[in-house]
Each structure stands twice: as structure tokens, then as C-alpha cells.
Simulated assay, not measured.
Amino acid sequence: MARYTGAKCRLCRREGAKLFLKGDRCFTDKCAYERRPYAPGQHGRIRKKMSDYAVQLREKQKVRRMYGILEEQFRAYFQRADLKKGVTGDNLLIFLERRMDNVIYRMGFANSRNQARQLVRHGIFTLNGRRVTVPSIQVKAGDQVGVREQNRNSPIIKEAQQVIARRGCPAWLEVDGENLKGKVNAMPTREDIQFPINEQLIVELYSK
């Protein structure tokens, strides 16, 4: 299955929630979901009664699209979360939050998770002093993240740093904006994920 390359704003409208896929644009009046808060297409305005399965599927698709994960990857994360001790739904979201591309986005070194994923693949960032190119690497408490010396004047990173104040940085991360580096202070918890997600619906979907 190929990665989605269509209009990202259609995904927000389809899921009925702002997924913040367009970076700073999502905080402005240009946001397509703010202007047309209904599903795309000819029959988007028509309200349909959804089955239990449809509700579960839409919740899974919302989370998968927000983090930019393909279906096979997402299912693998669920299987790992199910095998780990604790609440499966919480484990799943924590695995997604610990991805390197998500950490870069959360620290404000990229405008969106998609942009963060591209920057990581280009080798712009380091993890504990070593260059990384794999967006799915799982960070741990105490890890140090930084921008490589030769990439610190990148206009993309400078622009991202200017708009981080709009969304804020979670408490489990620490950012040094002047030196373009950050630290993972602790492992994320369910309370650190403020986006409205009902992870229990995803667990019920995959448990059938």
C-alpha cells in the first residue's frame, strides 16, 4: 500500500477533526476544516447513522493519519502494545509518541509530522550524538536530540521554531531553542496526549 499523497486537508474533513497535517496553516483562517467542517465529496453534508464498526474504523483511521502511519505499521504497533504489560490502548499511543519523527515535531523542529519524517530521512538530526535517518526509532528517557551543525541555518527549522508557541511543547520533552537541541526528560504518559482520541475503540476494532 502506497502512502497517501492527496490533499491533506481532505483527511481532516473526512475524520471530522483537525489532525494538524499542514503545520502553521492549521492555526490560521485558511484551515479547510474550519471553513468546511464536513466530509469532502458530493454527499459530505449528509449525516449518516454509523454502525459500531464504522465508528471504530474512523477512530483508527484518525489516529493512523494523524501520525502518518501505514496500516501494516499501525497494526504492528498494536500487536506490540497488546503484548506489553499495561493498558493496550495507552501502550499504543505511547509507542506512537515515542517515534523519532513525532519527537522532532513535538520539539518544534518541524511544522508537521510529515515534514519531520522527511527531515529525519535526510539525516538532519542526531540522537545521542549520532546521525539518524530512521523516523520510526523509539526514543527513551534521557535521550538527547539535536540538529546537525551544518543544518542549523535551515529556513525550515527556523520557521518551525517561530510557530511552536502556538501548540506548545509537552512536559516530557525539554527544548533548547538557542542551541537547537532537546532532551527526553521522561517517557510520555496518556495524560501528555491532549488530542481527543478514544483508543478503546481501536482496541475493540483489532480485537474482533
Rank of each mutant, 00 (worst) to 15 (best):
R121N: 11
S112V: 02
Q118P: 10
T126I: 13
G89C: 05
G89A: 09
D90S: 15
T133S: 12
L127G: 03
F109G: 07
A76W: 03
K85C: 00
G108A: 05
L92P: 12
K60N: 03
A116Y: 02
G86D: 11
D82S: 14
R99D: 07
R64S: 06
F109L: 10
R65S: 08
G68E: 04
V87L: 13
V120L: 04
G129I: 05
D90E: 15
N102A: 10
Y67K: 09
G89T: 07
R130Q: 14
I94P: 04
N102K: 01
A76C: 02
T133P: 00
R64I: 02
G86Y: 08
N111M: 15
E72P: 00
R113G: 06
F125Y: 08
S112D: 10
L57I: 08
V87A: 14
V63T: 07
N91M: 08
L96M: 06
I69E: 06
G108L: 09
M107C: 13
L96F: 09
R130S: 10
A116M: 03
L70N: 12
M107H: 05
E59W: 09
V132Y: 10
L127C: 09
I94E: 07
T88S: 11
R64L: 06
T126M: 15
E71H: 07
R80E: 13
K62T: 04
L127F: 08
N91P: 03
G123V: 09
K60T: 01
L127S: 05
K62Q: 01
L92K: 12
E71D: 08
L83M: 11
F95S: 09
L83P: 00
G123I: 07
Q79K: 15
M100N: 07
V120Y: 01
R75M: 00
R75Q: 02
M66K: 13
P135H: 05
T133Y: 03
V134F: 00
I124S: 10
Q79F: 08
R106V: 09
H122V: 03
D90W: 00
L119M: 13
R106P: 00
T88W: 11
G68H: 07
E59G: 07
I104M: 07
L57S: 12
G108C: 02
R75Y: 08
G123L: 02
A116K: 13
H122E: 03
N114R: 15
Q61W: 02
R121C: 06
D101G: 08
L119Y: 12
P135Y: 02
I104N: 08
V132G: 03
F95G: 01
E71Y: 09
N114W: 10
V103R: 02
P135V: 04
Q79T: 15
E97H: 01
R75W: 01
L83F: 06
R80S: 09
F74E: 05
N128K: 14
I94R: 13
V120I: 07
R65C: 06
R58Y: 07
I124V: 15
I124A: 12
R121V: 06
A110E: 01
R117A: 04
Q115E: 14
S112W: 01
E71A: 08
V103E: 02
G108H: 12
